[in-house]
């Protein structure tokens, strides 16, 4: 059985120079599609992947990633916006790696496109009035 899932990888600074994704392809026969990457050497990095492959190999690949010290976001979470708490400040707009937030040009209200959200969690802590809520 094949699986295909979107995952978020948080790289600690000492890991960002390493070719982990190559191993996923070479050693486990997985295919990937990079949705978003922000990694530069010596810094904490973030990589959002759509990872696909045979179920058994997929699980092995995830196990390998976990062993390297990379933090993998659990896949069954959801992020929603508490509309009553959102002040439409816009602080989240430049934080979200997948551009799930957009400014409505006329009113300058902040639109949230739930479909673009990959549940990386970055906005949850960066939203000043804590309007973005992570459900586990």
């Amino acid at each position: 059985m094949n699986v295909s899932r979107r995952i978020v990888l948080h790289f600690p600074p000492n890991m960002t120079g390493q070719p982990v994704v190559c191993h996923l392809v070479k050693d486990f026969g997985l295919t990937f599609n990079i949705i978003k990457a922000s990694i530069s050497p010596g810094q904490e990095g973030l990589l959002i992947l759509e990872l696909s492959g045979e179920r058994k190999n997929y699980d092995k690949g995830i196990k390998y990633l976990a062993e390297t010290g990379i933090e993998i976001q659990s896949l069954s979470q959801d992020v929603v916006r508490d509309e009553a708490r959102c002040t439409h400040c816009g602080a989240c707009v430049t934080i979200c790696p997948t551009e799930a937030f957009a400014l409505e040009p006329k009113t300058r209200k902040v639109l949230f496109d739930h479909n673009k959200c990959v549940v990386c969690g970055l906005c949850v802590k960066a939203c000043p009035p804590r309007a973005m809520i992570l459900y586990l």
Partner: peptide
């Protein structure tokens, strides 16, 4: 700032506000 991008040191930098204009 409200255009969404400013230039700083020859780089395009995306802008965001902490104060809410709609409010």
């Amino acid at each position: 700032l409200k255009s969404g991008n400013i230039r700083v040191r020859d780089k395009d930098v995306p802008t965001a506000s902490l104060s809410s204009y709609p409010k």
